[in-house]
Design a protein around this nucleic acid. Structure first.
Lengths: 230, 230
DNA sequence: CATTGTGAAGCGTTTCACAGCC
DNA sequence: GGCTGTGAAACGCTTCACAATG
């Protein structure tokens, strides 16, 4: 029951939804619910039930026909699949507005990603304290990554410094990067980058607004990779 | 050449990439480049050339065979398609860490989304100034939305208040919402919601890290909706 | 003759529909 | 009887490959 060596490959689209399910299931567990059906979970996640069942089936057959899924067990399995059975300390590069907000936002630590360090280049920022962390110099990055076993770096620098930040992270040994700068990063093979561009999100909304204004006015758009129209 | 009444429907996946192209093209224009091929643009955007051509073909036939695309004209067309021929003021609900960072981050205004207002419930925050904006009371939301013609709201509140924030935004007349709270929002039909959950992004990275650790170690994962492995 | 624009093939994701099982 | 698990159909997106063309 525990630990197949080579796990099934889970489709990316499913991987992107598992955290959502996990959040909902953890909330349900806390609220004292201990069984849930694919219908119930689908409702809470804003997706359809067949999708929930398909998604969960990639983890294994953890439900009971005629009954549903045991919440606690699903939580355990999803955690395991996502690699959340231990914490992943992250290091934040850039202690400006966004870096400070990220460091100060408790939600990261709560969900398994404690801030293991925050670095910057600006002497005015170094040694200030944000989110309970002393800001350190970029040069300390390798030491921080080594000592805290950091695998994930977060880039919260201005665009112009983002590529350099990525280079530093990679050299320090980080293998996954969450990039908030609106720049396409070049990284060596084997390093995973995800990009979150807030302006892009707004521009996608703008597209739909504009469509509503010019055309039918009741043309409710379908949800994209991450959007929803309920 | 200008203003077909009912535009082609553009696939969501393409809509999500147009802002990226736009950014790159605007940068190129500024750098004095005035022609670009699908290959060149693809390179800069980190995608393949066929995709660029297909994407651009949804806008119309704006290239020249054997030559390429005129940068300035493409910029103009993408802007128009995304509804970026005018600004979209946004209103931010929640003046905590994230709300302050968003308000203080100049990038929004620069890219066509000036902060038209920021509201909160906490008396300690009201009348403080963040990002050049005086924080106002949630009750002022309808007035702000009306006077500034705000169509897009940004939710930067704690999870517990997010649904209420959405309700206030919708009642005030906002029709698009960018939600940073890790909660599924219920909104009436005709309102578009996009969700950005930072912890979800990290969990997706964690999945790939974990896979690398358990399995092959050289199983470079394909890019998901928004990730990349270069 | 380099490069676009695009049918058609390939592939991944979603949804359907129902057999299997508690 | 109710709900899961899953083949198969349907759909949308990506990539190929090449005819069209300035």
């Amino acid at each position: 029951m525990a630990g197949q060596r080579t796990r099934r490959r889970i489709p990316e689209a499913t991987v992107a939804r598992l955290p959502e399910y996990l959040k909902i299931l953890a909330d349900q567990a806390e609220a004292g619910v201990d069984r849930i059906s694919s219908d119930g979970l689908a409702e809470l996640a804003g997706v359809n039930a067949a999708k929930v069942r398909k998604d969960l089936s990639y983890l294994g057959s953890y439900g009971t026909r005629g009954v549903g899924y045991e919440v606690a067990y699903l939580v355990y399995q999803i955690r395991r699949e996502l690699g959340l059975d231990h914490d992943w300390p992250v290091v934040i590069v850039g202690a400006g507005n966004l870096g400070q907000a990220l460091a100060g936002y408790g939600g990261f630590g709560e969900r398994g990603f404690p801030v293991g360090g925050i670095v910057d280049l600006d002497p005015a920022k170094i040694d200030t304290v944000v989110g309970g962390q002393r800001v350190r110099h970029l040069d300390d990055l390798p030491a921080i990554v080594q000592s805290r076993q950091v695998a994930i770096g977060v880039i919260a620098t201005p665009s112009a410094s983002a590529q350099s930040a990525a280079d530093h992270l990679v050299r320090a040994g980080v293998t996954s990067i969450l990039n908030f700068a609106p720049v396409v990063l070049a990284v060596p093979p084997g390093v995973t980058v995800r990009k979150v561009d807030l302006a892009v999100e707004l521009q996608i909304l703008s597209y739909h607004e504009q469509r509503r204004a010019t055309n039918g006015l009741r043309a409710v758009p379908a949800d994209g990779a991450r959007g929803a129209t309920a």
